[in-house]
Amino acid sequence: MNAAHAVEARGLAKHFGALKAVDGVTFDIAAGEIFGILGPNGSGKTTTIRMLCGLLTPTAGTATVAGSDVTTHPDRVKSAIGYMSQAFGLYGDLTAEENLRFYGGVYGLDRDLGARIAWAEDRMKLAELGGRLSAQLSGGQRQRLALGCSLLHRPQVLFLDEPTAGVDPAARRLFWTIIRGLADEGTTIIVTTHYMDEAERFDRLAFLSRGTLTAYGTPTEVKRTFGENMTLEDIFVQLQGSEA
């Protein structure tokens, strides 16, 4: 494999009975890149990410994440990645700090657990929220807490499934500042989104539509393939329209 690639997907497919949720996608993601997966509802974004995280077994194709094959070495993949699911996946009946403590323990942090929790609270701007039950946090606060939990063990690759859905613009901007900082420090970040204004923030992106890749490259490259005057938003609408 190419050492420079944090993620390699080769003909990756997932079928649920007759439904081809993901139908043979191939892409590479370079280390330290912010990679966007865009697509309308039901296009297979979550399914793709779940296969890359070892949550679903691919029907066909292979994928390596952080140098390990997701089907043959899921345990190696799991300790190298961080994952934030589309739904809030933390414990609402634990406080923010307890959630951090739990995930730190689960990722095997021991002596530096306290230091990492302090780092996460500082970096994710959670300092005053530590004692609050996470069910009582706002959308943006929850999202930063979940991000903090998934980063405690210093993952090489971070998967974020619609992290900014339902979050206000100010909170989204704060979130993206944090993400950019992480990428600059070398973390590879894969993000799915519906928001077209966010697409410009990606180093490269892939459009998924009905389980297949319809466009793939840097935002500029993608725009070029569809015509110079098109915004990404136009392309998105056009791709979505061709589905119906």
Binding site: K78, G89, V106, Y107
Partner: peptide, 14 residues
Amino acid sequence: ESGTLEQLIVTPLT
């Protein structure tokens, strides 16, 4: 049901 299992399964927990 609450969605926490998915987050639990991606951890190295056996």
